[in-house]
Design a protein around this nucleic acid. Sequence first.
DNA 1: CGACATCTACGCGTTACATCA
DNA 2: CATGATGTAACGCGTAGATGT
Length: 186
Amino acid sequence: MLDMGSDPDSDCFSTIFNTLSNNNNNKIQRRFTDQQITSLETIFQFESKLEPRKKLQVAKDLGLQPRQVAIWFQNKRARWKSKQLEKDYNELRASYDSLSSSYDVLLSENQSLTQQLNKLHKLMEKKAKSSNSGLNTNNSTEEKVSDADSIMKPEYMEHDLNDWDDLECNQLLDGDTSNQWLDFWS
DNA sequence: CGACATCTACGCGTTACATCA
DNA sequence: CATGATGTAACGCGTAGATGT
């Protein structure tokens, strides 16, 4: 992109332009007064863009050139947008951090539950082996509930333990399914 | 009615200057 | 006092929409 701003020749144009558009200065930047700023800020709160007629009126009221008012609103919109972006970023960041910590908690719970399931699985295998070896003296068709079974929640008992291998447990927190979990907990 | 030129306002990036730590 | 960081008025450029020819 052509950078006219850093070109000395363009400064001549700027000077000419300033002379034409600003009666009394060129290159001398004059800060707006506190009253002018306050008025402009107040107007901006209600309308971030000015109708041409309103712009002329504001310029007249504040003793500014209409172009100065237009530029002030342009810069103000840019500053507001920048701050808004920063605010949005911070909110998203906080949301992400919250989700991330929730995920860590879920991951920890998942590992704990997986360990419990492994222990139960081994207990069940042990029990099955002892039953098959004929050492089980209980002839009743209804087996006595083992300690392992007694601590399992009913909803877990609905599933065959063989279906709850490590892979499947881990899948709960992997890929697309993790979103469902996070949605559920949010 | 469509094509083109001109004007206007805007967003974006940048510059030049003022202010402050 | 010098200097770097920050804020801000103003600018140039590109572009979209409105208007005129």
